[in-house]
Design a protein around this nucleic acid. Structure first.
Lengths: 213, 213
DNA sequence: GCGCGCTCCTCTGTATACAGAAACTCTTCC
DNA sequence: GGAAGAGTTTCTGTATACAGAGGAGCGCGC
């Protein structure tokens, strides 16, 4: 793996997990020494982060970690509603029913995963990731899939702001199950509606439990 | 202006205007000598192009200019429909009526611009760009606006494939006028419908006059 | 004659050196 | 005491040198 890839992955995770707080200045020499690489690959990593919107080039003072305001979250979910609503509808039209039937059943059994004593809930979030991937490939549209992937980076960051307690995750699992079921049934409008419902509740939960940093 | 910015703008235009054909290998030393700059800023430019999807990193053989297939055009317009339909609806809800009334009147007089003896139709495309910008700022959603901007790069490239004759441009102007009118009237569903109609006709025209390169 | 393997060569990935620009600070003047 | 300006310092932007990896071409063997 290239040094610039490692630097990118490390910095991206540090930002997403809020180890690097918004407003932090990422000076090139400082970060290159911290990561044990030269300035050249680090610059490439910073460029990618800036293109994604996780950092912004702030004048001559290096790049700084961007903040996420409440207004940003609203905008993020507005775009998410647009993209994922359409994606769910397309998946219902074009997807493989069996794949989503299996995911549907997995989500029905998700409460067991949530009760497992893993504070990070790896297994559950892995299941959510598999549903996202299944939709991505079902829609057969690389541009739409790419747009959703670039959104998810920011959404993971927002998720860390909210207290994802077991109660909310159990409800979310039921909502995901409804989405998978509607796609498996080949019902575009129902899939879109189920997605809207899920996103509305997610946004409400985030805004309710949002802890200003 | 930075050398990397100039290199990016030059290469981007060369690709969009089809001066650099799909499949062309952009070797670093070759291009850096052609543009009269060093490899370092050129690498940054190539990185940005690859992030946008205009080029792809092809193994150890440098980056190559991506192709646009008929299937790509379908996918592109599918995403465009999703994003611009929603954007038009949001603009109708949140936009300033006077701004779009003015644009509406300008589009009604657009046939004169199209008849002007400018083969590139600068004035007309400038007007289209102003409508896009007006929608971008009216929606008050930087993430959605950003997604549409990244799409437009590819769409300009597609536009160059089609023969944009005066007849089609006159029809397109009328469709744009309808979009602006609906937004000015504050009617979200009508704005979305007018956008759908315009995109459907644009796609039909592109596919009808598409000349395989 | 065809296929496999080796060698050479070119290209990317990385490190470092240098120059220009921007910001901070200290001093001086009002 | 405050503000403006010059000096200094540190940063980014660019160029170049070096090393490793990958591919192409040629030769050898079957």
């Amino acid at each position: 793996m290239r040094a610039s890839d490692r630097a990118y992955a490390t910095l991206r995770d540090d930002i997403i997990e809020w180890r690097l707080r918004p407003g932090t200045v990422l000076a090139e020499v400082e970060q290159s020494e911290r990561l044990g690489i030269s300035r050249t690959p680090l610059r490439e990593a910073l460029g990618r982060l800036t293109a994604e919107g996780l950092t912004t080039a702030s004048g001559g003072r290096g790049v700084v970690v961007t903040d996420i305001s409440l207004d940003d979250i609203d905008q993020l979910f507005e775009l998410r509603e647009t993209l994922e609503g359409r994606a769910a509808a397309l998946a219902a039209e074009r997807g493989d029913a069996l794949t989503f039937q299996k995911l549907h059943h997995e989500f029905l059994q998700a409460p067991a995963l949530i009760q497992a004593d893993d504070p990070a809930r790896h297994e559950y979030y892995d299941l959510v990731g598999r549903l996202d991937s299944a939709i991505d490939s079902a829609i057969s549209n690389t541009y739409l899939a790419q747009a959703m992937r670039s959104l998810r980076v920011h959404l993971v960051r927002v998720r860390r702001l909210a207290a994802d307690d077991a109660g909310r995750l159990t409800s979310a699992a039921a909502e995901h199950a409804a989405i998978a079921e509607a796609i498996a049934a080949g019902n575009p409008r129902l899939a879109e509606a189920a997605t809207m419902l899920h996103l509305h509740r997610s946004l409400s939960h985030v805004k309710a439990t949002h802890t200003p940093h």
